[in-house]
């Protein structure tokens, strides 16, 4: 059952590297990180994990809403003053924002390029359709698009206030989020998006481990367990806020 093994070794003497692979022509490490499929996936995995880390912190921060307007609003002020006096006012916050924008852009551009390549590599469908074992891939793509749209809406709603329903008050997130979650569409958009986050993280966290070469047969169950736990905790934590507003727990 090992027919290729001897062939491969015999070929060594007869065959030298073929076109495009002579050492001089090998692309630079930075180039191959951006050009190769494995490199692009690495960009996706690292940027995804950065966003995941941020989401965990963000979700925990949101839970402050349960401790009243003063604590929540004080937290918002802290986000501007953190890093002082070493850093100037709001510098730390802007640093986080820059890293996040870089992560979102790197992630989305790689996702777009890889998806285009994947579709081109398999142009013809099979006539005989069968149930695929996993919806992972398709969920990742539409889930990613939902997330991208959500991120734009979310910033325009609660950061800049551009599309905010009602009176947007800077540094008063408690009042602002009650406005948003008092509209039906605010709740719908938000709950759909955080559910998409859950699905995305469920496949994404485990995938990132494989991409970065951390996954192996022994760690499989542990990695899936962490992925599922993260997905569930994130979604429940985020969903708790609109649910609290809807049920009047937070008002």
């Amino acid at each position: 059952m090992r027919s290729l093994a001897p062939t491969v070794i015999c070929m060594a003497l007869a065959t030298r590297p073929v076109k495009g692979t002579a050492p001089g022509k090998r692309p630079s490490p930075a180039r191959s990180l951006w050009d190769s499929t494995i490199g692009k996936k690495t960009v996706m995995a690292v940027s995804g994990l950065i966003m995941l880390g941020y989401l965990v912190a963000h979700m925990i921060g949101n839970l402050k809403v349960f401790f009243g307007p003063d604590e929540m609003n004080a937290y918002a002020r802290f986000l501007r003053t953190m890093g002082e006096p070493v850093l100037h006012h709001e510098w730390a916050l802007w640093l986080v924002r820059i890293v996040l924008v870089a992560a979102v852009v790197g992630h989305a551009v790689s996702a777009y390029q890889l998806s285009r390549r994947d579709i081109k590599a398999r142009p013809q469908k099979y006539v005989h359709k069968r149930k695929r074992a996993s919806y992972a891939t398709r969920t990742m793509r539409w889930g990613g698009i939902i997330l991208a749209l959500f991120i734009v809406w979310h910033i325009l709603d609660l950061t800049t206030g551009t599309v905010h329903p009602g009176e947007f008050e800077h540094l008063h997130p408690y009042q602002n989020l009650i406005d948003t979650f008092s509209t039906w569409y605010g709740n719908v958009i938000y709950i759909v998006a955080v559910s998409a986050v859950g699905l995305h993280v469920r496949h994404g966290f485990w995938s990132a481990a494989q991409t970065l070469g951390v996954g192996n047969a022994r760690r499989e169950r542990l990695l899936k367990l962490i992925a599922n736990t993260l997905a569930l905790v994130l979604t429940l934590g985020f969903v708790s806020v609109p649910v609290a507003v809807m049920t009047g727990v937070v008002s």
Partner: peptide
């Protein structure tokens, strides 16, 4: 194409 870790 690239790998999306679908496992097929």
């Amino acid at each position: 194409g690239g790998c999306t870790l679908t496992g097929e």
